[in-house]
Simulated assay, not measured.
Amino acid sequence: MFTNEASAQSETGSKLKANLSADLVSSYVWRGIKQAAGASAQPAVSASLNGFTLGVWGSVDVTSNDHKEVDFYASYTSNNIIFTATDYWWDGEDALHYFSSPTDGNVGHSFETALAYTLPQSFPLSVSWNTFLFGKANKKANGDNSFSTYIEFNYPFAIKEVGFRIGTGFTPWASTIYGTDKFSFTSVHLGASKEIKITESFSVPIFANVIVNPVHEDINFVFGITLR
């Protein structure tokens, strides 16, 4: 995600950074699974200090009330390793019970922990492990926790002025959130991004992603622009 960044230097030398951005996408596809029927607006705000980041990300379907999402997260970065904890809220418009615990099976909070690592710049392959610990969407039919897990690999590269990213993601076991009953690939994707120069001092980042979901036999081609 492209961001607009501001920073402030404290008396102790620590540097506080703040980021603000918004994506406009033709459709919202998350880990190979389409989340909203139409185009979506996706704002993001975060603040970082000494490796710690607090942020919020959201998505709303601009063509209907089909989807509304607000996710708060906290992360820590050190030596190419990122640990993240995220509270997802997926219940959308008119749910009207946001202030409830993610351990309550009647509400839509889902809590996930994630660990990501990127290899050195000479071969910048990244891998992430993401596991849901709480949430009604994470429950099996018998009430047990499915610990829905998604593992993803990504590799970035560039051709002239276009940045590319190729990757894949899978569930290692049955998952209620991803709709799988065994080890399954839910995403095989190729993304491209570029900045379109409007004037000498202003440019607009654009991106496109082709996302194939093998287990659900689906494919999506997503286009987006970033405002920053």
Rank of each mutant, 00 (worst) to 15 (best):
T12P: 01
F132C: 06
W57Y: 14
S175Y: 07
N106M: 09
S148N: 07
L54D: 08
P214I: 09
S101R: 03
L16P: 03
E161V: 12
S21A: 13
F170V: 03
K15V: 15
T77G: 12
A22K: 02
A6V: 10
I196F: 13
G167R: 04
S175V: 02
L125H: 00
Y88T: 10
F223A: 12
G167K: 05
D218W: 07
F157M: 01
L24Y: 14
P214A: 06
I225A: 14
D23L: 12
W30Q: 06
P172E: 04
W89T: 07
Y117E: 00
K136C: 06
I177D: 02
T176D: 12
G135D: 03
A192M: 11
F111A: 04
D104A: 07
G32W: 06
F221Y: 14
A192V: 04
P102M: 10
H216A: 13
N138C: 00
A74M: 11
F170M: 11
F111V: 10
G58H: 05
I82D: 14
W57L: 09
G169Y: 10
V45C: 01
G167N: 05
R228M: 13
I166T: 13
K68T: 11
F164T: 04
F147L: 13
E200Y: 04
L190G: 10
A41P: 02
V62W: 05
L115M: 13
N4A: 12
F72Y: 15
S148L: 03
S100D: 14
P156F: 01
G105K: 13
G224W: 02
T199F: 01
N142F: 05
A18H: 08
